[in-house]
Computed example of a mutant assay.
Amino acid sequence: MPDEPSRVSGARAAWRLAVGTFTVFPVRPVDVDRAVAGRAMSLAPFVGVLLGLAAAVVLEAAGAVSGSPLLGAVLAVGALAWLTRALHLDGLADLADGLGSGKPADGALDVMKRSDIGPFGVVTLVIVLLVQVAVLSRDDTAAWVALVAAVATGRLAVTWACREGVPAARPTGLGALVAGTVRRGAAITVTLATAAVVVVLALVAAAGPSLLDYCWPFDLRSTFGYTSYSGVAPYSELTYGYSVDAGPRPAGLLHHLSDDPYLITAAGLLLAMAAGLGAAALLRRRAVRRLGGVTGDVLGALVETATTVTLLAAVVLV
């Protein structure tokens, strides 16, 4: 017999709903109402931080073991898709097909409900995944914290999409459950808290050591006998017994304003998060006007849009 919904406190129920909605990890069923749903959507960015850290470990570890930043980026993006059951990518593809169909709201919603993926969805997925991999494959010690910030921002976009005044496109489904459940004050508070977490991680990244130096019991670089791409001399690594020097990485825009790595990393990531949220807000506005409100697919598309734009902005700024 399926598990009966458990009666737990509102905070625990909200956390279980947030984890169950945004990750692949199973949770015990809980009684859910719109109050619990609102709390869960407010907790979404913190689930994003945990997902981002898990993907960042894959990024750093795979890059250190293989000596290839590109392979690390591919595996990190793949791990993130697995940890989220690829639901957000599916939502992005469905929304692209729905908006690209040119049909009225009802027809576009019907297109989004189909199990197959059309040409608009395929092209959008390919572009988004390629952009994410390309950005994360850069030879930079700040790549891991940019990934964490981007993943958290993607879920923060959902928090804002569920604020009061944003309608649901359908009377049923995830969108109907969570639309309009988050108060503006709660969204602002969660945004500030998420930004504070990112700033702390940015300061850690700016200190120089790789993420693995904080969470790994041994040095993968010395173990496998080469200098990692995230070591002291970026863009220079020892591969198969000879040195490959690709030269210095082009400085981000903020490097022209300051030489302080702590200020550059923290300010750059905060600006990148703002850019991601702005892009998600524009897409949300388009979806509401076109479809009449938000759906689960729209929320998934907002996650991937905010994540990708945040990564793009980070590589330009930091």
Score class of each variant (00 low, 15 high):
1 M>F: 06
15 W>N: 07
18 A>I: 05
22 F>D: 06
23 T>P: 03
27 V>Y: 10
30 V>T: 11
31 D>P: 01
33 D>T: 11
39 R>W: 10
41 M>H: 07
44 A>P: 14
47 V>L: 13
48 G>E: 04
55 A>T: 11
58 V>M: 10
58 V>G: 05
73 A>W: 07
77 V>S: 15
80 L>T: 06
80 L>Q: 03
82 W>Y: 06
84 T>G: 13
84 T>D: 14
89 L>T: 09
90 D>G: 05
91 G>R: 08
95 L>H: 09
109 L>C: 12
114 R>M: 04
120 F>A: 05
122 V>M: 10
127 I>E: 03
132 Q>H: 03
132 Q>V: 08
132 Q>M: 15
132 Q>D: 12
132 Q>I: 10
134 A>R: 13
140 D>R: 05
140 D>L: 04
141 T>M: 03
149 A>E: 02
154 G>Q: 08
156 L>E: 05
159 T>G: 09
160 W>G: 08
162 C>A: 15
167 P>N: 13
168 A>R: 13
170 R>Q: 07
170 R>T: 09
174 L>T: 08
174 L>C: 03
175 G>N: 15
177 L>N: 03
180 G>S: 12
183 R>L: 15
185 G>Y: 12
190 V>G: 10
193 A>S: 03
193 A>N: 02
195 A>Y: 03
199 V>A: 00
200 V>R: 00
201 L>A: 02
206 A>H: 00
209 P>W: 06
210 S>N: 08
213 D>G: 09
220 L>A: 11
220 L>K: 14
224 F>W: 13
227 T>V: 09
228 S>K: 05
234 P>Y: 12
235 Y>W: 09
236 S>K: 00
236 S>P: 00
241 G>S: 09
248 P>S: 15
249 R>G: 03
251 A>S: 11
252 G>L: 01
254 L>K: 00
255 H>S: 06
256 H>Q: 13
257 L>N: 02
258 S>E: 08
261 P>A: 01
262 Y>P: 02
265 T>F: 00
266 A>Q: 00
267 A>R: 01
268 G>M: 00
271 L>G: 01
273 M>Y: 00
275 A>S: 03
276 G>D: 06
276 G>P: 05
280 A>W: 03
281 A>T: 10
282 L>S: 02
285 R>D: 13
285 R>S: 07
292 G>M: 07
293 G>P: 09
295 T>A: 08
299 L>E: 05
303 V>A: 11
306 A>T: 05
307 T>A: 07
311 L>A: 09
